[in-house]
Design a protein around this nucleic acid. Structure first.
Length: 412
RNA sequence: GGGGGUGUACCCAAGCGGCCAACGGGGUCAGACUGUAAAUCUGAUGGCUUAGCCUUCGUAGGUUCGAAUCCUGCCGCCCCCA
């Protein structure tokens, strides 16, 4: 294994990274690694609390891949123990549900599969932190706790905020950063990757490493990727994420709905496109920039063709206002119709699954979002009690994102 | 263990015996405008067999012709004291 020169390594490492602490130590570590031809141990921990890996997770993961390409050792920690606790970082309330061990293990498997799309799993070490936490006795744990003061814990910004807002802080949450830091001790991390919200845990890891007379790790922190709403961090629970296992066209649609001003961040953190080129791309029409962004990222998780196809499909169906190609078919039994083969509008929308309730059906109709399409002929629906004559293959729309095709069935 | 505070729809937050399916803001949804971006404007935002009906204001009871509003028990959260 040969390593590129330190300056080159630094350039790669610094892209899309907000904070490196302590900054100076990174260079000396890299130098030493080069001299001794020893790869650095680069840690990234994930808690298998939910099954989907989204673009937010890929930011540090991509960084890890870069480290791998530079010849360093990737160390993935599956937080099967910490998952039971829940990371309080950046949260304004505790996680509500606790997961079972079986859930966690299932998530972990699926996680790894997805992580493999970003980094080279073959060359990575994978550990489960339950392996060491499971063996600790209460005394061991208390010993560990003896290294941290409550004041230190409460100085964290997220806890401070919660205190102020009178939102509960649970004791187990306080242990979380300690556990995470202990992981670093156990695997002898040289570098830990994560978002900026991890600062506290990263520093705590240094303290514990020092206490154990080990090399101290360096925190390489990426900015937190904002979600598709353009304001809050990307997260499953906020429903503003793009999952890396989503279908290309689904991803495409989400990308195109991004607010313009997050594009710069997305380009920087999610693609390898040279930053000068990114500047040029962003100087052009935002729509084109977005298509380029979407194509590139989709290409990473599927393949180039899929990205291009998704883009052209978007252009046709949405950019030019055409019909969606994948309108789901819904069966309606003739039994449900009156003797003239009609059904009331609100009922129809509900039967087709376009709306969850009658009230919402009414709202859509009143809002002018509903029309039917038979042989290319559009008919607006204006009243919820209007009787609609159904025909096989009729298309019903109840808003931009709600389409259905009717399939009439004889009564069973 | 003691004292005080608080619990309203997705979130924040009014309401404090009838005019309350519940003000206002945020969010969300739909429409116009657009590049299914932003901004702006309009409407909607418990459910239903929809000029009406049914179920909601932590929870269980009670008082009352009538309660989100009053009383009691219980539960959760926050703060202070020990």
């Amino acid at each position: 294994m040969s390593f590129p020169p330190v300056s080159e390594q630094l350039k790669v490492i610094r892209r899309g990274v907000e904070k490196i602490v302590p900054e100076e130590e990174l260079e000396s570590k890299l130098k030493k690694s080069l001299e001794t031809q020893t790869p650095l141990r680069v840690k990234y921990g994930i808690d298998p609390t939910a099954a989907d890996v989204h673009l937010g997770h890929t930011v540090p993961l991509r960084k890890m891949r870069q480290f791998q390409e530079l010849g360093h050792q990737a160390v993935i920690i599956i937080g099967n123990a910490t998952a039971m606790v829940g990371d309080p970082s950046g949260r304004d309330e505790a996680r509500s549900k606790r997961l079972s061990e079986a859930d966690v293990e299932a998530n972990a498997q699926y996680y790894l599969e997805q992580v493999g799309k970003v980094i080279d799993l073959e060359k990575a070490e994978v550990h489960r932190n339950g392996d060491w936490f499971g063996k600790m006795s209460l005394v061991d744990i208390l010993n560990l706790c003896g290294k941290v003061t409550v004041a230190q814990l409460l100085s964290r910004d997220d806890f401070a905020k919660r205190m102020k807002a009178e939102v509960p802080i649970f004791l187990h949450e306080c242990l979380y950063p300690i556990m995470q830091a202990w992981d670093s001790v156990m695997i002898r991390a040289d570098i830990e990757l994560g978002g900026t919200e991890q600062l506290y845990s990263f520093m705590l890891a240094r303290d514990l490493q020092k206490d154990q007379e080990l090399q101290q790790q360096i925190g390489v922190m990426s900015p937190i990727l904002v979600g598709t709403d353009g304001t809050r961090r990307m997260g499953k629970s906020l429903g503003n994420y793009i999952g890396i296992s989503e279908e290309p066209y689904e991803m495409m649609k989400k990308f195109m709905q991004l607010p313009d001003d997050v594009m710069k961040m997305y380009f920087e953190l999610l693609t390898d496109i040279d930053l000068d080129e990114v500047k040029d791309i962003l100087a052009g029409h935002p729509k084109d920039a977005k298509i380029r962004l979407a194509q590139t990222v989709i290409g990473q998780y599927w393949d180039n063709d899929s990205g291009v196809q998704a883009a052209s499909r978007w252009q046709k169906e949405i950019g030019e206002g055409g019909l969606p190609t994948d309108i789901p078919e819904k069966a309606i039994s003739r039994q449900q119709l009156n003797e003239d083969g009609c059904m009331q509008a609100a009922q129809l929308l509900k039967q087709l699954g376009l709306v969850p309730s009658t009230s919402q059906a009414n709202q859509r109709i009143q809002g002018g979002a509903v029309f039917t399409l038979v042989d290319g002929e559009k008919t607006a629906v204006a009243d919820r009690s209007e009787w609609i004559a159904l025909a096989d293959g009729m298309i019903v729309r109840a808003g931009k994102k709600a389409w259905a095709k009717v399939r009439l069935e004889e009564s069973s």
